[in-house]
Design a protein around this nucleic acid. Structure first.
Length: 416
RNA sequence: GUGGGCGUAGCUCAGCUGGUAGAGCUCCUGGUUGUGGUCCAGGCGGUCGCGGGUUCAAGUCCCGUCGCUCACCCCA
């Protein structure tokens, strides 16, 4: 025998018992988001590498070391999508969606790809539910999106959820702040951890997340972006918070909340679950007012979030899901009854019943056993002359006309 | 990329100080010249991740390698 093949590192099969749960999760997301006017969008699984290099930001870990990039055979560099927002902004610009009524509200459930070392809640191919609203900078857009995600997580019974919000200001303000922060870090470079020091030029905001003692001391004196927002940004942030409070969405302001993608402006937020271990972010997002323009479209404000399916599943208490009930199982004794049995199963299905037929050549005992295991409500045992219909709950059985089996079941159910 | 733990039947695992593989569950058959859920019996199923080494002998020791997993990092 040749070598047994396995899924590639960091990927997994969704087996039937897991698929049911995911379908339920998708149905819930769909109900909540479409109810609020968000419409489904699907973009290609891979894009021109440029979309992410420009959109996500060249200095990010995602672009620097986590993308699956390859030549498409025609000398073009393409990349398996590592996230969903940049492709949607590309689509917005490409299809002239700025001519539609604004904001354009979209949602997706797709898989994404990052070449990271896998661990709990982190895969190389992973699934996200996301929502984006493009074309309005109204703080109600930010608040609505956050409330929708909070609702979704709540309905999916994700346990011990905590929401942190912050604001990064405009790209200009963020840029100016970045330089001020870099200056502060350089002035105190000798007290910083090595990796923070080496990232001063690349990504100074990361320094806030360090747990290195010296670094923390330096960061305690560091200027905070939140304190230096310009008037419009500060008002925007205050309005978002006000709306969240009105909606009863508890949150805490985190002035050091940093998202690892370069396109964020103004509002950023993150939901984490205490039920998760290292990878505790279950969903997050923010505003990205310059992104569409960066990808060649008109200047367009936007805001959105993404939530990880695997992490929701890990942190969820609920999501009870059963496979489809079986109304009728058609059993038969020998090959000579197969045609009649097949016809009966077909007839039952046409009558909208969930019907299954014996397909493995089991003994009659084995067939009944199997019917019991899959939870069949009725079993029809097809014989040459007669057909016996058995009620698997009561154990009762009656001889019926083969032609009358379906009608009989429908009548029995009606009586209940 | 850096560390720790682990890799024995489809699944969960047992195999002490080395002597050439077991259990439970699942699945199938029989116990009723065709009728389930309990019970009983039997059967299917493993090159003990892979490669090398030590040894008369390795699942068991050593080295390497691959994979899984957890953490760092990063993120959903």
């Amino acid at each position: 025998m040749s070598e047994k093949l396995q899924v590639p590192r960091g990927t997994y099969d969704v087996l039937p018992q897991d698929a049911d749960t995911r379908v339920a999760l998708e149905a819930t997301a769909r109900r909540i988001l479409e109810g609020a006017g968000y419409r489904r969008i699907e973009t290609p699984t891979f894009e021109r590498t440029e979309v992410f290099a420009r959109g996500v930001g060249a200095s990010t870990d995602i672009v620097q070391k986590e993308m699956y990039t390859f030549d498409d055979g025609g000398g073009r560099s393409v990349t398996l999508r590592p996230e969903g927002t940049a492709p949607i902004c590309r689509a917005y610009a490409e299809h002239g969606m700025h001519k539609l009524p604004q904001p354009v509200k979209l949602w997706y459930l797709s898989s994404f790809f990052r070449s990271e070392k896998p661990q709990q809640g982190r895969y190389r191919q992973f699934w996200q539910i996301g929502a984006e609203a493009l074309g309005s900078d109204d703080p109600a857009v930010d608040a609505e999106l956050i409330v929708l995600l909070a609702t979704l997580l709540s309905e999916l019974e994700v346990g011990r959820v905590r929401l942190r919000v912050g604001s990064l200001g405009t790209l200009d303000a963020r840029h100016a702040y970045r330089e001020r922060l870099q200056a502060h870090l350089r002035d105190n470079a000798d007290r910083l951890s090595e990796d923070v020091r080496s990232r001063i030029e690349l990504n100074p905001l990361r320094a806030f997340d360090s747990d290195h003692a010296g670094t923390r001391a330096v960061m305690a004196e560091a200027p905070l972006l939140l304190d230096q927002l310009d008037r419009a940004d500060a008002e925007h942030f205050a309005a978002v918070r006000e709306l969240l409070l009105r909606a009863g969405v508890e949150h805490e302001v985190d002035p050091t909340l940093v998202r690892g993608l370069d396109y964020y402006t103004r509002t950023v937020f993150e939901f984490e679950s205490g039920k998760l271990s290292a990878q505790n972010a279950v969903g997050g997002g923010g505003r990205y007012d310059g992104l569409v323009e960066m990808l060649g479209g008109p200047a367009t404000p936007g805001c959105g979030w993404a939530a990880g399916i695997e992490r929701i599943l890990l942190a969820s208490d609920g999501l009870p899901v059963a496979p489809a009930p079986v109304d009728l199982y058609v059993a038969f004794g020998g090959a000579q009854q197969r045609r009649a049995a097949f016809a009966l199963a077909d007839e039952a299905r046409r009558a909208r019943m969930n019907a299954q037929i014996e397909l493995a050549g089991r003994s009659l005992k084995g067939q009944l056993k199997h019917a019991d295991r899959i939870g069949a409500r009725y079993v029809a045992i097809v014989d040459d002359e007669t057909t016996v219909l058995k009620d698997m709950q009561t154990g009762e059985q009656f001889e019926v006309d083969a032609a009358g089996v379906v009608a009989r079941i429908l009548r029995e159910r009606g009586m209940r």
